[in-house]
Design a protein around this nucleic acid. Structure first.
Length: 802
RNA sequence: GCCGGUGUGGUGGAAUAGGCAGACACAAGGGACUUAAAAUCCCUCGGACCACAAAUCCGUGCCGGUUCAAGUCCGGCCACCGGCACCA
């Protein structure tokens, strides 16, 4: 009989669908296991072979855990709000809801053809009002707790499209669509105070099991630094507060720099003699897009303030103040003390403007470059700090400043608050009303969900407002407080909103009273294993941790962290080693692979392709190899014999493989798990036959990777009552994993001279004498003095001789 | 520039804790079966030396070190990939 993947896969997918075997239960007596993949954005292009890699990987884990007796929750849904859909809808005059529906249908059909054991009864969709009702509800809680606020912010504004652009729509400083100039425009935006959680977001990384590289990226992104805030007196009378991480270098501060947006510039207008020059510089900085300000010429620019000077509080000397765009308003206090001797940017600036450079830490050559790597250095030219180490000087100066009341220790974060407004149609409406009398009035929770108006035109307005602003009968409402004429907020939420809590909804997706019921939350608690892409490490992963902590604080969820364990997959590249993309023409569609080779082969190849955590190029020939493996597995049925015990000659091979496959699956080493199964199969074919018990075990081990073909073989040969529902993951016996005799290498002075077979449990003396008894070794040793003998059990003997 | 990661045969990749480098595949070459091809099965497959083999030597990006023993550890470089980018 030939292996016919089409009929087998169709047959079992239907059975699984009808019986709902993969649906999680609420059986709280069972151990729970919650596996999660990042739910897809249903784009118009459909799946490419990169999508199934994480889905298959956690499917392998989920299927194995079910065979281990766990109650497994492995859900899927759709992160369906977003720009591409809206843009496609505008272009083709189809409502985004219809586009979304169509895209989801296609994604669903494609994913289902792969036989992933998702619990489809819990499917969610972020654009479903029954879902986003709760996204809006969370926003109202944030607002209530003072974590949502409005702020004037610069946004990207396309001068031709007359609309606000997301950062990713700005390519090389111009609009992605029309290539027109993009400028910064100030708009009032909703912000979420993620910075209030910065400290906990860093500290709690110690409580979760994430790869070190993920933790490091989050820590760097949050960017905690400990320094000091110091007040500098000015000749204008105002105190100018700066932030520095190097208060120890204060005696080397020879000038100051404030950002072009600093409020004192307005205040000091009357005192300044070069206001025109300053205004010009301010205008230039404002005109620059983010791109120009960062990617452009790094040559330092700036203007000296004429008429106001500062006084260095350490030595009482007058120093100049400059404005320069290398100092950012958004970080610290928007002002710095410049220490050109020990800061690269300050050094460059000082060189250009001919400012004094003073060495305050010994060890570098400040004529050549700033000496920044000076943590181990000793202070000089610094009055009472001179002679101290940098570390001691930091403490001493902070104590001094604190005592004098002109400074104190201060922790700063690079992390900024989350810009939560989007001037778009296809997103969750922000559920507040603007009343001329009452101000910002939140919608009543009972009025949620606030749905999007179903209209023909949702094109961008030309004044930077959301398309919703044009829809009069939606925008104009009565104030829920005072009844006066009021207007709805027209901004919508970013795509990150719906994905910041979706894993909670999966626990109880149909609940009408809450995000999820208490019982479900108490049982499922948090995600046990979350796999996703490295590209989501700093945004999605951080945002969702923030929301979860907030929900924990207000008593909604039972754990402080949403994900106990995080893993990350590598990308699947095109066969040319480049990222798969339509424009490069190297996209592989999984449908074709499933059609020609079958879903099981597709899954095997996805897992065999290489180290799961690294990128790997797609190679069609590799697919053929996996199909060959599936064929060889199917053909085992032709050499099947009776027998209800593993035969002695295969015993250790089987036990070793059971151990390895189980270990590898739990440790993301899917490629070597499959390699081990291939090797075992080679052993079986070498033995000439396989008995029923051996086939049963092999089938269960292979099942997580190739679920359809194994179900078929299991059922056709009556190996048990039903693989998915009844079978148990096989146990291995440690004592049977070992061979009785092993071949070990014999080295002389580290070079291999012979290989000998000895009993696996040989002791030191036995092994070494056996090694010396070898003819070759004996010959090599003649006339030499043995200095040292090393025996590593089961591996080698090394004899050091002269 | 900073942070993180990666460099192993013709290719994808193996090598739990410093212990036989190249598992498992792919491709290639040879053979069997076949009228023939495909499929399948068997053999070879890092390099140098060599008629062949044995033996020997070289070999995990580069240079150096530690060790009886280094792909693995340490120091110094180089290249590539990803992220961030004037964060005081």
């Amino acid at each position: 009989m030939k292996y016919d993947h089409k009929s087998i896969e169709k047959k079992w997918q239907k059975v699984w669908d009808e019986t709902g075997v993969f649906n999680a239960t609420e059986d709280t007596n069972k151990k729970k296991f919650y596996a999660l993949i990042e739910f897809p954005y249903p784009s118009g292009q459909g799946l490419h072979v990169g999508h199934p890699r994480p889905y298959t990987a956690l499917d392998v884990v989920a299927r194995k855990r079910r065979l281990n007796g766990y109650n497994v929750l492995y859900p899927i849904g759709w992160d369906a709000f977003g720009l591409p859909t809206e843009n496609y809808a505008i272009k083709n005059h189809i409502h985004p809801e219809i586009v979304t529906e169509k895209n989801i249908a296609r994604f669903k059909q494609q994913i289902k053809s792969l036989g992933i054991s998702f619990d489809w009864s819990r499917e969610i969709n972020t654009t479903d009002p029954e879902y986003f009702k709760w996204t809006q509800w969370i926003f109202l809680q944030l607002l209530k707790h003072g974590l949502a606020y409005k702020k004037e912010m610069a946004v990207n504004w396309c001068t031709s499209c007359k609309c606000v652009l997301a950062n990713e729509e700005v390519v090389n400083g111009v609009c992605e669509r029309c290539s027109s100039e993009v400028v910064r425009k100030v708009k009032s935006q909703w912000m979420l105070k993620i910075t209030a959680y910065a400290e906990r977001l860093i500290n709690d990384l110690d409580t979760v099991d994430y790869p070190e590289r993920v933790k490091a990226q989050q820590r760097n992104w949050i960017g905690r630094s400990t320094g000091a805030e110091v007040d500098f007196d000015t000749t204008a009378g105002d105190k100018l507060t700066i932030y520095t991480t190097r208060p120890d270098t204060i005696f080397g501060a020879t000038y100051m720099v404030i950002s072009p947006e600093h409020p004192y510039l307005e205040k000091w207008k009357g005192l300044l003699k070069n206001n025109d020059e300053i205004s010009e510089y301010q205008a230039m900085a404002a005109r620059k897009s983010d791109f120009e300000r960062t990617e452009g010429n790094k040559e330092k620019t700036g203007v000296r303030l004429e008429g106001v000077e500062a006084i260095n509080p350490a030595n009482g000397k007058n120093i100049s103040i400059f404005i320069s765009d290398y100092v950012l308003v958004s970080y610290g206090t928007g002002a710095i003390m410049a220490v050109p001797g020990h800061d690269t940017r300050d050094w460059e600036f000082a060189k250009k403007f001919g400012l004094p450079i003073i060495e305050v830490v010994k060890g570098g050559n400040i004529e050549e470059a700033a000496f920044t790597d000076c943590a181990a250095g000793v202070m000089v030219n610094s009055d009472f700090l001179s002679g101290m180490t940098v570390e001691d000087a930091k403490k001493a100066i902070v104590d001094y400043l604190t005592e004098k009341g002109i400074g104190h220790e201060k922790v700063n974060y690079k992390l900024r608050d989350w810009i939560f407004s989007r001037q778009r149609y296809w997103g969750e409406p922000i559920p507040v009303i603007h009343c001329p009398k009452c101000g910002i009035v939140p919608l009543k929770e009972s009025d949620l969900p606030l749905k999007l108006p179903m209209v023909e035109s949702y094109e961008p307005t030309d004044n930077g407002e959301s398309p919703l602003a044009n829809i009069a009968d939606w925008v104009n409402v009565k104030c829920p407080c005072c009844g006066a004429d009021a207007k709805r907020e027209t901004d919508t939420m970013p795509q990150w909103a719906g994905s910041s809590w979706y894993f909670i909804r999966y626990m109880d997706p149909h609940n009408k009273e809450a995000l999820a019921g208490k019982e479900a939350l108490d049982y499922w608690k948090n995600v046990d294993w979350y796999n996703g892409g490295m590209e989501h490490t700093t945004l999605h992963l951080l945002y969702s941790r923030f929301w979860h902590k907030f929900l924990y604080d207000i008593g909604v969820v039972p754990t402080a962290e949403p994900y106990a364990k995080r893993t990350s997959h590598g990308m699947i590249l095109g066969s040319n080693g480049e990222k798969m993309s339509k424009s490069r023409g190297n996209v592989v569609n999984p449908d074709e692979i499933v059609e020609e080779f079958g879903a099981d082969t597709m899954r095997l190849y996805e897992m065999f392709i290489g180290d799961f955590e690294k990128a790997a190029p797609w190679q069609q020939n590799g697919v053929k190899g996996c199909r060959r493996f599936a064929d060889r597995y199917f053909n085992l049925q032709e050499i099947l014999i009776a027998g209800d015990k593993i035969r002695p000659e295969l015993e250790s091979a089987f036990h070793k493989t059971i151990k390895k496959v189980g270990y590898d699956i739990e440790n993301l080493k899917f490629n070597t798990a499959i390699a081990a199964l291939m090797a075992l199969m080679n052993d079986i074919y070498a033995a000439g036959s396989i008995n029923k018990e051996e086939l049963r075990i092999f089938t269960i081990l292979l099942n997580p990777f190739a679920p359809h073909i194994t179900e078929e073989v299991y059922s056709a040969n009556s190996l048990g009552k039903g693989l998915v529902a009844q079978a148990q993951w096989p146990e291995y016996d440690e004592s049977k994993c070992k061979e009785d005799t092993v071949e070990i290498a014999v080295q002389i002075n580290g070079k291999i001279k012979a290989r000998i077979n000895i009993a696996a449990d040989s002791d030191n003396d036995t092994a070494i004498s056996a090694a010396k008894a070898d003819e070759k070794v004996a010959a090599e040793l003649t006339g030499k003095t043995v200095i040292k003998e090393i025996y590593v059990k089961g591996k080698l003997v090394n004899i050091v001789a002269k």
